[in-house]
Every structure is written in structure tokens, then in C-alpha cells.
Write a protein that binds this DNA or RNA. Sequence first.
DNA 1: AGACAATCGAACCGATTGGTTCGAATAAGA
DNA 2: TCTTATTCGAACCAATCGGTTCGATTGTCT
Lengths: 226, 226
Amino acid sequence: MNEVDGKADAVTMTQPEPQGAGRPAAGEDPIKREQILDGALCVFMQMGFDAASMNDITREAGVSKGTLYVYFKNKEDLFVAIIERQKLRIFGRLQEILEKNLPVVETLHDFGMLFSTHMLSDRTVRGARMVIAVIDRMPQLANLFMVAGPNSGPAMLANYLQRQVDNGQLKEIEDPMMVGRQFGDLCLAGLFRPRLFGELTEPPTAERIERNVASAVRLFLNTYGV
Amino acid sequence: MNEVDGKADAVTMTQPEPQGAGRPAAGEDPIKREQILDGALCVFMQMGFDAASMNDITREAGVSKGTLYVYFKNKEDLFVAIIERQKLRIFGRLQEILEKNLPVVETLHDFGMLFSTHMLSDRTVRGARMVIAVIDRMPQLANLFMVAGPNSGPAMLANYLQRQVDNGQLKEIEDPMMVGRQFGDLCLAGLFRPRLFGELTEPPTAERIERNVASAVRLFLNTYGV
DNA sequence: AGACAATCGAACCGATTGGTTCGAATAAGA
DNA sequence: TCTTATTCGAACCAATCGGTTCGATTGTCT
């Protein structure tokens, strides 16, 4: 089952599936597990890993501490599980934009708007803070969060850019991966770090993001447009 | 004295300066204070605010806990004091580069190299993580860190860009502040977030930063160069 | 040398922590 | 209805926390 949560795997491996639909074995009820993860996410987002207590989490999740430890080995296992669950569904939507066969200027604009809106939202910023706070002690989270992995926004954008170069829609790009990252960071310019550091306490307005993205598209096309 | 450290102010206000050079009053020895701040910084950088204990800090700093509480009111006061002490001296060096009257391409390059090297260093990244981790609970730190304040890199760059526009060295720039931020984030593109999230565990090489900065300068001048 | 004050160092306090245990309560299935 | 198993809930354990206290030690000044 879940590779990180060894306990669940152990339980699964030692207990055969009960007859019929049946009652899930202890620690195997997906509804109860989601309930715990929802409560944990809420508390970890508010307080961070260290300051969040297992008591806080049991209260928020509405389960007993005994039950919590049936489903998760320890505090860190729980934390890792919520990070893993936060698989970004945004990639599917970004991919859809890149596959629409719109003019490059419109595709980049739509991509930039979705990417920026997502990255600058409260949920993403709080999640980012949560991970950044502990990344030194839990380096395995770097692989889970996948900022620069093969499925990341910049990577899929790089693939898109290469296709447009091949189709003659864009000038030659020596390093599409680098340019994909540049475009993403241009869209976030002047917004992401102020969001992380608490200078922008609210997500920027759509208009403010629009100005950033429009400028990013213009800078980009001034160099790579045909 | 130090506005955050109320205890020191109280001590100062109630005890007259001793005769002659004399021995500093309790809680007033700057050498001892720096010793505590150095130890605290080390521990906070490694473990973050919550996970760092006052016992860890007394050991690292080489002072007793009683002494630590003579100099600082509590754990949070100590933390704020080290953040305040981390005033970035980088701004002076960035300002020097902007005042050299070199060609724009060289100035932007030198600025970008210094800015990126600083932002991507271990020290800055660890310091950033430390602040990001607690910014929700200590919003006053946002003002201390000054990511986007009047003395920040992008702000001084904006002023420089406006001067170059006025001198006919650059095309008209509608929003120099925004363009200053864009240039800074272009220099960091694809590097800063991977550094924060632990995907880049070491600072990038000078060559890697050079490629980023050179590309940023080129993109910038393709739009604003004359 | 003596006086005085800063610092040490360890014990202390009240509180909370992560994790464990186990009888009682509840829920599900036959 | 009865059986079985999951979950509850609270007590427990050992440890640690932030912060306080105070007699002893050390250092500085006269």
C-alpha cells in the first residue's frame, strides 16, 4: 500500500482480506484515514510540524490518540503522509492548457495565469512554508514536493516550448528547461517571495497577476517570438 | 537601546553608567551578548525556532541559562534579536555596483552575480527557511527581513534603471519597480525555489549562476536595450 | 587584600510532549 | 440477538520544555 506507512503494509501483509465487502481491518479504513489526514493537514498548516502536537491533531481530526497510532507509526509518518497526499492536481490542468493548440501568446498567458494563481494561493504558500521549515531534517520531502521534477510545471512547459520551436512558432531555444523555469519565475516575479515572507499577507488580485503574466509573456516573446 | 529587548532598556534606565570604563552592568556586556547571539543563530539555523531548545542554545553559546535570561526576556526576544542583527550588508555592495557608471550590460551582470550568489548561499537560504517557518506566528519579522522594502535589491535596481532611462541608455520603462523585481527573479530562475525546498542541496556553481545571469541580462536587454 | 557584582550551574516549577496501554463503548456482520 | 473487532478515552510513562531561583564561583575594581 503506502510505501512510507510501514505499519499499514505490515497489517495488510499479515491479514488476509476479510470475506465480502466486510469491515476494514484496524488501521485500514480509508474514510478514517482521510479524516486523520484532513485534521493533521489543518494543524500542520497552521502551526508547522514542531509546534503542532498530536493532541491538537486528535482534537482537530476527531479521533482518539490510540486510533491515530493505529493508522500512523509516529508524528513524522503522519506528516509525510499528508505531504504525499498533496499531489498537485494542478499539473493535469496545466497540461490541458499546453495541449489546446492555441496561439503561443494565448497558451503562455493561460498557463501563466493558472500557474501563478496556484503558486500564490494561501494553500500553496502555507504548504510551502510547512515543508521549507523541516526540509533540513526531512530531506526525503524534497523528492515528494517535486518543485523541479519531471512532472513539474517548468518541465512540461519546456516540452511545449520545444514543440513550438519544431513547428516554427518560436525561435530556436538552446535550453528549453532553463527557459521554462525562467518563464515560471517571471510570472511569479515580485510576488512569490513577498508571499512566503509574509509581506504580502493576501494572494494578489487577478489583475495584479494579470500584469505580471502579461509582462512575462511580452519579455519572453521579445526574445523567442518569430 | 534595543527596542525589542525591553529588559536591557529597563536595566539601563534604572542603573546609572558606572564610574570610568568600569565593568558593564548585568545584561549590558556587548561581548557576552554577541556570544549569546552567535550561539543562538547557530542553533536556530540548524533546527528552526520551535525545535531549538534554550538548553541547546546555552550549550552552544557557552553561557548559563540564568545569564541568557538576564540578557533576553524570552526565547522569542532572542530569536527576533538575531533576525535584526542579520542586517544585510549586501546592500552596500549592490549599491556600489550600481554607482560605478559602467555600461548597462556590465552593471546588470555584476549586480546579478552578486545578488544571486548571496541569495543562493547556504547562509541566506537557511536564514530564509528559519524566518519562513515562523512568519505566520511572528508577522513582525516580515518588516525586519525587508524582502521588498525601500532598501531592497529590486528597489535600488529600479532607481538605477530609471536613471538609465533618463540618460537614454535604456528604453522607456513603465514600471521600474516591477522590472527591477523581474530582473532579480530572472537571475534566480530555477535556482532559488529548488534551494529552499532542498532539491539543490549545495549552492550552484559560479558557472551555473553565470549562465542564469547572462540569460537574464540578454532577456532584459532584448526588451529594454537601445 | 577586600568589596562588590556578574556569571555559573544545578535544582526547581508547572506544563506539555510523543508514544503506549487497556478496559469500556460502539459498530458491524452473521 | 450474539459475537467479534474497531475505536474511544483517559491514564500512564519518561522525557523535555521555557522560565525562575539562589548559593557558589569567578572576575573586576578600588
